[in-house]
């Protein structure tokens, strides 16, 4: 199934493809170099790597300076994701119930706004809260809540676009059959968007896990999240430990998100015929 665009652009096809590969190398080469340096058997980060060894992976996995931050990040990300999923899904369902298009647009913009929020400025603001309310700065409360705000737009966007694909007549049908709104929510809408909610949760988790700026400002003294540990390592002791750790979390993220995307696409393909609605 060749894209007719190829026919349209005719002779421009070859330079475009060559340029695309060149641009693609910008995306790929840094990661390849990073992975390569992590399997070195030498003591230094060098490219090309000297020999092959997985000793740096073993070293990271056995080093509490890496594993402690990892588990802390898991906890923070899970908590922030839970909040983001709950509120983002709720918001996406609510936006589809707003009658006036102007209000709907406004709320939609608000929910997507955190994507555009400059993280350092936001972190400084949250940092001030930690300072103003003593006791908070020894806890992770503000960090978790802040990360939830940053992750919420991803959940909102995904669930909201899933709601766009749901036949609006389903709700009307359910209500003419006597179902109250909590029942429609529980029996009709949530089951339909549940796969998307799960996808959104995993994306949100990945966003929070990778997010470093809030950690820089909000992690209590003496503790580190995983990205913060990576950042410190990059600025202080640039060793193959860092690239090994980076490779591991990246591969884990790629595997997780890859599976979610493939499964999601397969499901969407299976469902498509139901949603074909002809209009007059």
């Amino acid at each position: 199934m060749k894209n007719p665009l190829a026919g349209v652009i005719g002779g421009f096809r070859y330079p475009v493809v060559v340029l695309s590969v060149a641009i693609g190398l910008l995306l790929f080469v840094p990661f390849a170099v990073l992975v390569a340096t992590s399997v070195t058997s030498g003591q230094l980060i060098l490219f090309p790597p000297q020999g092959f060894s997985l000793k740096w992976y073993v070293s990271v996995l056995g080093d509490r300076a890496w594993t402690d931050p990892f588990w802390l990040s898991m906890g923070v990300s899970l908590a922030a994701t839970a909040i983001a999923v709950l509120l983002g899904t709720s918001g996406a369902l609510a936006v589809h119930r707003i009658v006036r298009p102007g209000v709907g647009r406004l709320v939609r913009t608000l929910f997507i706004l955190p994507i555009a929020l400059p993280p350092v400025a936001y972190a400084v603001g949250l940092h001030r809260i930690n300072i103003l309310f003593e006791g908070l700065n020894k806890s992770l409360v503000v960090l978790v809540l802040g990360e939830a705000i940053i992750a919420m737009p991803y959940v909102f966007v995904l669930v909201s676009s899933a709601m766009n694909r749901v036949d609006p007549a389903l709700r009307l049908a359910a209500s003419t059959m006597g179902a109250s709104w909590p029942m429609i929510l529980r029996r009709v809408e949530l089951p339909i968007v549940l796969p998307t909610v799960i996808t959104g949760a995993i994306f949100a988790f990945s966003v929070v896990f990778d997010e470093v700026v809030l950690s820089v400002f909000l992690t209590p003294p003496g503790t580190q999240t995983f990205p913060l540990a990576m950042l410190s390592a990059a600025r202080e002791a640039f060793s193959p430990n860092l690239t090994a750790a980076s490779t591991m979390v990246s591969l884990a993220a790629l595997a997780l998100l890859g599976i979610v995307t493939v499964v999601g696409n397969r499901r969407a393909r299976g469902r498509r015929p139901v949603r074909k609605v002809s209009s007059t």
Binding site: L27, F31, V33, A253, L254
Partner: peptide, 21 residues
């Protein structure tokens, strides 16, 4: 694959890659 590789890995990890280059 290259596109998703960079979409799904963290900004910091990709920046490390550029440092190494």
């Amino acid at each position: 694959a290259w596109l998703f590789l960079s979409l799904w890995t963290s900004v910091m990890v990709r920046s490390f890659g550029w440092m190494l280059i």
